[in-house]
Nucleic acid binder design. Structure first.
Lengths: 182, 182
DNA sequence: ACCTGAACACCGTTCAAGT
DNA sequence: ACCTGAACACCGTTCAAGT
């Protein structure tokens, strides 16, 4: 295909760029996720991306939150079952993105709207379980760090199955502890 | 100072390089920790480092294990107190290295001798607590991922104190859960 | 507003010397 | 064995155009 002329619009937007980034990440891993590789996959010059993201960190943050948007939130069953369901779904969704989480951690990621929404859902479940607000916030923080920690560590884990099983143990122990602490 | 002549020995070794790396990391953060910056601090050309480390990943792994070597291991008090002490000391030691852990995670770090030694100490404590070997291994894995997860997350946490407190909650809940599961 | 061209200031790593 | 010189193939990001 012939190179575009200057100024010719190409229909780039955040969503298209994020999809391309996910593909590059899946194919080439975190070290291969460069702005240049994403641009190249879109048939575009690297600096074109900067019209849609301020820098690479913002792109990675957006990609993580975009991923979090795919986590299904169970609606209103038993609160504890809901919490377990949300956390396992979060783990599996992040784990499917491979090296994204380590990259996110290294780039000082901030939480996006989907992360916030997930957090709100969890507060409700904890309140229904009888926790006060501050204890609920603490428990949620612990659960989030664990989910991120296990997915990040799982990328290089020799046995992904064992890593997932360890996460589920950790999850249940945390729920028991948080509930018992009230 | 005048530049060295070719072949002139300069007394570089792994330990000296690791110290320089820690300084660069402390001053410039993870994005500033380049092979070139480490070499520059040592007054040496970048490729000189490759006589002592195969690549940057190996250097980072060595730096993490070197850091782990500074964790004091309490000798033979109450097993649970020992475990809590080891984990908190590990957290504090890693947290003092700032952005090292996120970098370690992103680079697919492998465990070094000091990590292994710490693990062995923990197995003894768990066995003394009445756990069988496989449950002990699982619990240790969970504790390690948590320590790494909280330190990595803590680098960018808005409130480091709260992050540390959350880690200690997580630690106690995990110990309760692991012991109770037997 | 959104893209290209061109450049700047970096990277990690390799390889052929030199001593 | 351990270092330098020089190079290769990359990076993220900026800035001045063009439309």
């Amino acid at each position: 295909m012939p190179p575009r002329k200057r100024g010719q619009s190409v229909g780039l937007d955040r969503s298209v760029i994020l999809d391309a980034a996910a593909e590059v990440l899946a194919e080439n891993g975190s070290s291969g996720l460069s702005m240049r590789a994403i641009a190249s996959r879109l048939g575009v010059v690297p600096n074109a991306l900067y019209n849609h993201f301020h820098d690479k960190t913002e792109l990675i943050d957006a990609l993580l939150d975009h991923t979090l948007g795919q986590v299904p939130t169970p609606l209103g069953g038993d609160p504890r079952t809901d919490l377990v369901g949300i956390m396992i779904a979060t783990f599996d969704t992040l784990a499917a993105q491979g090296a994204l989480v380590p990259l996110y951690i290294d780039r000082h990621g901030s939480r996006g709207p989907n992360a916030v929404a997930l957090g709100k859902h969890m507060v409700q479940s904890f309140l229904a379980l009888g926790l006060d607000e501050t204890t609920a916030q603490r428990a949620i923080y612990v659960l989030i760090v664990q989910a991120i920690g296990f997915t990040a560590y799982g990328v290089s884990a020799p046995n992904p199955q064992a890593n997932r099983a360890a996460f589920i143990d950790s999850l249940n122990w945390t729920l028991d502890g948080a509930i018992r602490s009230q």
